[in-house]
Amino acid sequence: MKIEINKLKKYYQNKLILDINNVVFNKNMTYCIKGRNGSGKTTLLQIIANLMLYDKGEILYDNKLMHYEFMKDITYVSQNPYIFNGTVYDNIYYPLKIRKSDASKLENKVYAYLEYFEIDHIKNQLAKKCSSGEKMKIALARSLIFKPKLLLLDEPTTNLDIESIEKLKAILLKIKKQTTIIFVSHQIDFINAISDKQFILKDTLLEMGEKSV
């Protein structure tokens, strides 16, 4: 999915916190947004994910304005993802359930993701009781399982151990050919390993500049 941001402005309590003139995130490319804490990276991701309103400008998704149907192809994983009540399995199963996917294929698909993220041993455990790292894995598996066209990740390596970060790297490298990925991270190795382009959201919060890897 191609994302084009034109003359976007976002204010918070009458203060301009985002001012993006023109940025294009091309289809099936991976972008990293860097910047200091509080520079507006999460706000930008949430605006692209249609979770937050902006005040001026426009965002085009495949050259069209946001339509409710697009939400089925966009996913956002926050730094502290919300985990639903129920088991780990239930959490990962949820996006497939609402898409009414072929029931016979569902179970295998969920098990494949449980196994990949090495959380199969806790599949029947209450998800809310899991550790922070396990919760991040659940959220990632839950968001990746329906193969979104646009994947927005807000510091996905938070709470993950080195091995899990490598796993995440591998799966992102695998899916990046079919998915546009925009992520926020402070981990240099992770950024360099998976991003095609990097942007810096300057702490003036006004402009977004491109920077080569």
Binding site: M71, I74, Y76, S78, Y94, P95
Partner: peptide
Amino acid sequence: EIISTCRTLGANRFEILIKLIKE
């Protein structure tokens, strides 16, 4: 948080409402 999570997983309004009540 529940509504945002459901939206980012592709749930429609009715599905969000059902999930919200369950949560």
